[in-house]
Every structure is written in C-alpha cells, then in structure tokens.
Nucleic acid binder design. Structure first.
Lengths: 147, 147
DNA sequence: CAGCATCCTTTAGGATACTG
DNA sequence: CAGTATCCTAAAGGATGCTG
C-alpha cells in the first residue's frame, strides 16, 4: 500500500497514543515541521515563501509536511482560486499553542547543543561549560565503564 | 491580503532559530527514547527492565537506542562484569536537564492529544483552556477552504 | 543476562518532470 | 503559482538466533 498520496499519514499506533510525549513528537517531528511552524509564527506564508525561505527542501516534501500539519490541525490553508493561484498558510490556535513547547525545545538546544550563544566575553577557554557536542555520525570514542 | 511575502523579517534569524530545535529533536526523537528517558527519571534500570517495561520493543532496537542515548551523553551505563552480567542505566546530568523539556512536550500531548483528562473542577490549570482533540487516524472530513 | 550479528520491512525524505 | 506523479535513496525500526 502506498500511503504517500493519502492526505494524511497512517494511524498512530496505540503505544504511541499511550505516550503523550510521543504523540506530540509525532506531530512536530518531521524534518522541516518545526521550521515551518516557526516561520508561520512570524505570520502567514505562501507555498513559494517556504520554498524560498527553507533552503534545501523539495517541493514534494514541503507539500507533504504542510499537508500533514494541516491534517493535524496545526496550520490552516487557504487556496485562492485565482489565476495564478495563491495559497496562504497560517497557524491555527492549536499550532499557536505549540509555541511554549517549541521554545522549551529550542532553549535546551541552545543551552546544551553546539551553539555558542551565552558566550559573550571570555575569549579564554570555553571549557567551563563544554558540552559533549553530541555527534552520532562520528561516534565519539568513549570508554565504557566496567566494574 | 498582504502584498509581499518577504515580510518583516530577516531570514538569517530563522535559520539560526530552527537549528537548536532540530538538534534537540535529533537527540530525543527516537521511537522509544523519550520512554526510556522517562523511565530512567524514576531511577536506574537494567536492560531487562526496559525489555519488560516497554511493550513491543525489540532487543536490537533497545540496545541501539540505549547506545545512542549513551553516545549523546544523556544516559550512563555501567556493566558489572559478573556472571550472569548485570547492567545499570541511569540519567546523566545532561539527561536530567531534559526533564522540563520532556515535561513541556508531555503536557502539550496531554492537553491537546486524544487523552480525556477532563479536569472536573479545577478553576484554572495553568494557562489557556480548550482542546480540539487532534485526530489523525480518521481524517476528519475537512473541506478545503476556497475563496 | 546482556546484547551483537544478520537479515528484512517500513517510513521518511528527496529529485525532477509535469499539470491546472 | 501551487502543487502532483513517478521514481529513488537512506535511515529507522524489527525478528530472531547466537555468544560471553
């Protein structure tokens, strides 16, 4: 079966439903979804806006993620039947309600990820708060504790 | 409505802003990772504990996700060289620091997901109010707005 | 018990040509 | 302009047998 052309994605499994965390993650976990939501938080956007603003996204994926977000009631879409056509995407109230969540995730990333944001002065060693800089592609050689 | 899409906003900032979110999501985005982290939040656990506690996870995936979490410094692992062997997983400080994030995600899921937590009385439970109950499996007959 | 190794299925994501 | 259709790659996830 090909679910690709379906307007929404497959049903959420029971296990996922039992975990609110996974439920939320399912909605915003797409590769570009948080970016889309973030952009929409600054105001309505058109399809082409995303295409231009999000570097590296393909049209198919953009359309797909927008569709999923819409199916999940996180964003609204209005298609003006003009010629040439014009679309307008905006956040639903539900989508807006995600803001604190995204912010929380964002803050953690800033704080513990490889971003030097709170490093205003002190050109010396930044090691005070050196982070592991999670690197999964290159697995940091890490000795295993054995007892 | 609005004429131009370039709107009020420099693109640079957006790019910077989205990254930390995806970074965080990368670390906790695994199918079972948040469950693992959640369980560890209640105390150290062994490999078999997870196997038993998490319904439906395969050993390979469990081992894999544990390994990734460990590589990302979110959890610690101690392998006691006894016979039979015994393992003990626990949260690192970094892993513990995720608690507010997970909580935030969790709360949103509870509040807006398909969980019927009808708060009976309580006048004001934090902020906001209503909940649309997102439904993904049955694509609610949702007509497209056309203008 | 802990957890690799091997094999396989499913899903996400992508490039590109084309249409109303 | 706003998408679909078609085809493809990569990565995530899974079942199961085996070993120290």
């Amino acid at each position: 079966m090909n679910a690709d052309s379906s307007s929404s994605h497959p049903p959420i499994e029971q296990e996922l439903l039992e975990c609110p965390v996974n439920y939320t993650l399912k909605l915003i976990g797409g590769r570009w979804k948080t970016i889309i939501l973030w952009q929409l938080h600054q105001g309505p956007k058109r399809f082409g806006d995303f295409k231009r603003a999000i570097n590296g996204i393909s049209e198919r994926i953009l359309a797909k993620q927008l569709k999923e977000l819409e199916a999940d009631d996180l964003i609204n879409k209005v298609l003006y039947a003009e010629v040439p056509p014009r679309s307008e995407y905006s956040l639903t109230p539900l989508g807006q309600s995600l803001e604190p969540v995204l912010k929380s995730i964002f803050q953690w990333g800033i704080r513990y990820g490889p971003y030097f944001v709170d490093k205003p002065v002190s050109s010396a060693t930044s090691s005070g708060g050196d982070r592991p800089a999670a690197n999964r592609e290159v697995n940091t050689t890490k000795e295993k504790k054995r007892v």
